[in-house]
Amino acid sequence: MAEHATHDQHAEAHESHSTRFYWMIGAILAVITAVEVAIFLVKDTIGHELFLAILFILSIAKGAGVVMYFMHLRGDARIFQLVFIVPFLLAVTLCLGFLTIFSHHVGIAG
């Protein structure tokens, strides 16, 4: 128990980044947002599927950047990762499930 607590407390004192690092992450996230908008503006020329694929990848990268580096979940105590990632995975599963069920006017949701 004591060992467990020590481990988590050590993890809780997560790695401290320099302000320069945060500026760099902020700049990367800003570039990703700019690319998202640029992709949106040229979506008619690249096709809907490719547009969606690129957009989802960029959004996931942006969200992961915020969670891992701004919220410091990367390197933080495992219990924090658990109480966030489990509901998040459940939420994604539910979202995809409901979108699939309701994707047609005729079917389970008719």
Binding site: M1, A5, D8, E12
Partner: peptide, 10 residues
């Protein structure tokens, strides 16, 4: 708390 992390943060 008993989990070894700050309860408010948890």
């Amino acid at each position: 708390g008993s989990l070894g992390v700050d309860s408010r943060k948890l």
